[in-house]
Design a binder for these strands. Structure first.
Lengths: 339, 339
DNA sequence: ATACCTGATACAATCGTTTGCAACAGAAAT
DNA sequence: ATTTCTGTTGCAAACGATTGTATCAGGTAT
């Protein structure tokens, strides 16, 4: 090696075995550092492997052992085809999940799915290349997820928990969150509220329902909801249209996400409408950046890091064959400047 | 099926073959929809597979075909151990990459690596489970990357291009970017500049170098650089310290990233220092959120989406055995409100 | 009647590991 | 001198697909 000449590339255990003058089985055991093989042989083989830069083929290993060490992360884009993976909420959650799971030696595989039929999730969990799967957001695919959850255990979902559900979910109480946001606006004296969000999935629908409850309990208060897409390019034009529609008739806006809130505030600012004085705005998520903007966002906090931890923990339990219940986290109102 | 009874689970091609009364090979070809097998047989087998929810094992398939359809995405955290995957710039780039590559049928596997030795990248590309790899950021690992790039072709790096480099990089001209940012501040009349960023990796070092060039060309202007970590929790306290250090002696700050700029502006705001009137601030990256904040960020745009496209394209070429050169993109100054 | 296609299917090798079981040498116990 | 361990190693069967080659029946050309 001193002259820098690379030894010929070893491509499998058999070749290394021949080189070492032992059998393939012994090499396999030696590389796994099993005490079954003599310490000297073991070290000799390991040294040889290192010298030749040999690493056992993972595909073969996984085929044989029937486990992959890979966790699938899936985002179903059922009702929102144009949404991208680059959506900040998803990316943030994904980042924390990655931090959690790579810590415990797993790899993450990302799949973005546009459900074309009812089999998309089956295809993923039956592909034979995953030890478990995480689904981010139920979109409008709750039924499919529920069906798969009945036969595939190592599956954890980010989303809303419903009574009698088989699927193991992690998420905040979205109705409570919606209530908190609307209540905050009402407490500030706002009475004519609007809701910006796409209610096709259960999560946002719950947030709207919560907001409606709060408004119903306050005599004289009204709430009007405006469908608002999440795909970033459409969002701005749609919110613009919403604001034109509203004119001066609204004094508080419950936004279904921080991104929507951020865009809304930006557009209000452009129209010379001051936030929170003329119109108060609440977000939902408490993304890291919502405290970095001006004005800082009053929002309903989902503790994304804690959520990721809960998902990882539930998955670990389920991978070990144990059962893990759903986690419903309590949302927290973070009062900053926008409402 | 009308009574909802699930047929017994088929677990491999051989069983399905027995059930269909044909050989395993025929089933394999039928599922691949090859015209070699009779149309009727083919459809019968496909129907049978669908009915039993059978899907071929991907591990076996990949072992046999020697290709995996998986692209590895690696972030080396050499000089910045505390940085998380959840870093917004990385997540944004990763999102676009995912959009690009899932489009062409690839899956993405994420690995976060804290280089403990010089073999971390070898381990990844030799693992036998990847068709190719993307490395995000060179950190202080340029030498390792360069060595691996010499023998492993389907490898594309996000980072700085240096003369004579073997590795295929995609990235902006960081020195030019640094120059643009500093020049903008000088053009507004600022003369006592500061640079916030961690110059251990080549990218940020280049940005600083560019800024220094611009300042050197302007008589009477000065530039002082302050090391600033990227890990989000440390960043704020460190910037705070920087600002204390600076006092009133600075009228323009070149920040090495949008996140640093955003945090800096926030902290200036808290101290009652108006941006851009008292101190002008530039960012770097042009993350989607930098136009959503108030004040909107004046920043040096790296077209992350275009970068992702270039990386995907270079990788596709290299997967096909062709050669692909490095791409150096021209940074663009985006003038908004902060400077 | 023989030779020659052609379309469809079966056979068997292969990908590179892991792992239960057999084998074997040398030492200790009888 | 035979038996019984004990510590190592080799052998060979999985794992579940893909794919080049052989086979074979039926039809057409000679």
């Amino acid at each position: 090696m001193e002259n820098g000449v690379k030894p010929a590339k070893i491509k499998n255990i058999a070749e290394l075995a021949r080189l070492a003058g032992v059998s393939a089985g012994t090499v396999s055991r030696a590389l796994a550092d099993m005490s079954l093989v003599n310490k000297e042989t073991r070290e000799r083989i390991q040294a040889l492997a290192r010298e030749h830069g040999f690493r056992p083929n993972q595909m073969a290993r996984r085929l044989r052992t029937q486990r992959t060490g890979v966790i699938g992360v899936v985002i179903p884009l059922g009702h929102e085809r144009r949404q991208h993976i680059s959506d900040p909420f998803f990316m943030t959650l994904f980042g924390y999940l990655a931090d959690e799971l790579t810590e415990s030696g797993h790899d993450l595989m990302l799949s973005r799915v546009i459900p074309g039929d009812d089999e998309w999730l089956d295809r993923i969990v039956d592909s034979g290349m995953l030890d478990g799967a995480l689904v981010i957001g139920q979109s409008d695919q709750s039924a499919v997820i529920e069906r798969v959850a009945q036969y595939y255990k190592p599956l954890v979902i980010w989303g809303s928990h419903r009574e009698g559900q088989v699927q193991c979910t992690v998420g905040v109480d979205n109705a409570a969150g919606g209530r908190l946001a609307a209540q905050r606006l009402l407490d500030r004296g706002a009475r004519r509220l609007a809701f910006f969000g796409d209610t096709n999935g259960p999560e946002i629908a719950d947030r709207l329902a919560g907001a409606q409850q709060a408004v119903a309990a306050m005599p004289g208060a009204t709430l009007h909801d405006f469908p608002t897409h999440l795909a970033s390019d459409e969002m701005a034009t749609q919110i613009s249209a919403n604001l034109d529609d509203i004119g001066d008739s609204v004094d508080g806006i419950v936004c279904a996400s921080d991104i929507i809130a951020m865009t809304t505030i930006r557009l209000l600012h452009e129209r010379g409408i001051s936030v929170p004085d003329r119109v108060a705005v609440t977000g939902f998520d408490d993304l890291p950046l919502s405290q970095r903007m001006v004005p800082q966002l009053t929002t309903v906090r989902q503790d994304i890091a804690a959520g990721a931890r809960a998902m990882a923990e539930a998955l670990r339990l389920r991978l070990a064959g144990k059962d893990a219940p759903s986690t419903v986290m309590t949302p927290e109102l973070i009062i900053r400047e926008s409402a």
